[in-house]
């Protein structure tokens, strides 16, 4: 059923866009549910204060167990390749050593909510993926072939994430991810 869009409360600081927070987890063993079915909407919000209210109650990504993902996407964009906002897009992928996910995710989220990327409508959302050996951040944008935009996003990511100098950043189009079936 359609949800009413969230609205900033009195005195709150509105965000440029409304966002939705999603969670997914792959259960061990045979996969009987689709990616779509695993995706759970946690909350939608329209202001800085609403974001903190939800965020402060969520388990930090670095403290999640198993094969789990948080997805923070602009309201109206599902965190899936098939969504019309994503189908010509791609993502920057940053692999993190264990222990960095919570801090880096917060820095990424604050930069996105605060409109620090300065690429117009290009940003779709961000994902943090908790895995066994390493954790992975991804920032999705609409237009994979737009190199001016993807370079600008990379430069801002480097600035806001404050990553170790040897961190590798990789850009991948969603079309390529579909072809090689890589979904982490």
């Amino acid at each position: 059923p359609p949800r009413p869009p969230p609205k900033p409360g009195p005195g709150e600081h509105p965000l440029q866009y409304n966002y939705s927070y999603w969670f997914s987890r792959r259960t061990p063993g045979k996969q009987t549910t689709s990616y779509d079915q695993n995706l759970k909407l946690v909350a939608s919000f329209a202001s800085v204060e609403q974001f903190w209210m939800y965020y402060s109650h969520l388990v930090r990504p670095g403290d999640l167990s198993g094969h789990s993902d948080y997805h923070l996407f602009k309201d109206g964009i599902r965190p899936m390749w098939e969504d019309s906002a994503n189908k010509s897009g791609g993502k920057w992928i940053i692999r993190l050593k264990k222990g960095l996910a919570s801090r880096c995710w917060e820095n990424l989220v604050l930069a996105m909510l605060g409109e620090q990327f300065m690429v117009g409508e290009e940003i779709c959302g961000a994902v943090v993926s908790i895995r066994y050996q390493e954790d992975i951040l991804a920032l999705w944008n609409r237009t994979a072939y737009d190199q001016v935009t993807t370079s600008r996003i990379r430069d801002t990511l480097k600035r806001v994430l404050n990553l170790p100098p040897n961190t590798i950043m990789e850009y991948k189009t969603h079309t390529d991810s579909i072809k090689d079936n890589s979904s982490f």
């Binding site: 600081h13 440029q16 800085v48 209210m53 930069a111 605060g114 409109e115």
Partner: peptide, 21 residues
């Protein structure tokens, strides 16, 4: 139109605002 740009330190300040509680 004007974009609503917030830097990290401002967003962190809002975390402690009474409105967030």
């Amino acid at each position: 139109g004007t974009r609503l740009i917030y830097d990290r330190s401002f967003l962190l300040e809002c975390r402690n605002s009474p409105l967030t509680k």
